[in-house]
């Protein structure tokens, strides 16, 4: 036996991440992903409406307790993700390279991703101070406005950058107190599936972040029609038809819909990856995105003897 045969690598089965577990899609459907040199990399779940429904259910369950954690605790949990990711960054870089990234761009994406996590970890206990308000009403009342989570948020991660694009959507939502359901990039799905393992081994409570793979054109309709989803985030690089479907469909229960420029095409990553990621890393550090996925609650109380 050759040494290569003896050390036969054990390929990973890539699955969804829902409620802190790694289920396959209930449909049993999949699509194949190959590496740039044409080798089979993975059979990726083609999620369906049922998978979305399951994910929304666990996300709803997890949301209140995530929101009710102290800001300090939330900050530490998010920071912990950076610690774990940092320890496994070479695995991610290798995975990105197998998908056609240059070594330099893969390293840059990991650095930027870790940075972005640390950046948002620091916002958890500052949002109220910077964006909340005590309002000087012209009557004998104490009146204050607080930022609160909008609830359960669905996200359509951009096709690229594979990890950074999804994190640019996820992190403002975690800080906001929301629970998230992310549809991974279709062509570069693997790094986000692997990121689920990072979440699983950090301290993020089950159900707060859920990751599904599949085809966006199949899943958008199920997202917009679901009456227990409070907001949706997508990238403007999405096709006009899908964007319009989102805008029309999200009126079903007045979902908050935001297009955040967090991504680019897979081709752009291969051609101008460095500058794209540098720009993305910068524009993703925008605390106003946290406000997009929050509600303002204003409370009044009389002042009297």
């Amino acid at each position: 036996m050759s040494r290569e045969q003896e050390l036969l690598i054990i390929p990973k089965t890539y699955k969804n991440y829902v409620g802190g577990a790694f289920p396959r899609t209930e449909s049993g459907r999949y699509y194949k992903l190959n590496s740039v040199d044409g080798k089979h990399l993975a059979n990726v779940c083609l999620s369906t409406r049922k998978d979305i429904r399951n994910a929304v259910q666990v996300a709803r369950k997890a949301q209140a307790s995530w929101q009710n954690r102290t800001a300090y605790n939330q900050g530490q949990i998010i920071y912990r993700i950076a610690e774990i990711l940092s320890g496994r960054r070479h695995q991610f870089e290798a995975e990105l390279e197998s998908l056609g990234y240059s070594k330099e761009v893969a390293q840059l994406e990991l650095e930027s991703a870790i940075d972005l996590i640390v950046y948002f970890a620091g916002w958890t206990d500052k949002v109220q101070q910077v964006f909340g308000a005590v309002n000087p009403v012209a009557s004998h009342h104490f009146n204050f406005s607080r930022q609160e989570a909008v609830g359960v948020v669905g996200m359509l991660a951009p096709e690229a950058p594979a990890l950074l694009g999804a994190l640019a959507m996820l992190l403002p939502n975690m800080v906001a107190g929301n629970s998230s359901i992310i549809i991974a990039s279709e062509k570069l799905a693997l790094p986000l599936c692997t990121f689920a393992e990072v979440l699983e081994t950090s301290d993020v409570p089950a159900g707060v972040v859920n990751i599904l793979t599949g085809k966006k054109e199949e899943l958008v309709g199920h997202f917009v029609s679901h009456m227990d989803v409070d907001a949706l985030i997508a990238d403007p690089t999405l096709s006009f038809e899908l964007r319009k479907e989102l805008e029309v469909g999200s009126t079903s229960n007045l979902k908050r819909l935001h297009f955040w420029a967090t991504g680019c095409t897979v081709d752009e990553i291969h051609s101008t990856g460095k500058s794209v990621i540098e720009n993305m890393a910068k524009s993703a550090k925008d605390p106003y995105r946290i406000l997009d996925v929050q509600e303002v609650k204003t409370t009044w109380h009389p002042i009297s003897e």
Binding site: V137, S139, N143, E295, V296, T298, T299, W300, P302
Partner: peptide, 21 residues
Amino acid sequence: GVVWSNTYNKFDPTSPFGGYK
């Protein structure tokens, strides 16, 4: 979006008003 405690239907220009859901 608004919680009135021990009062109700109070409005003021400095006080944000608007809905959830």
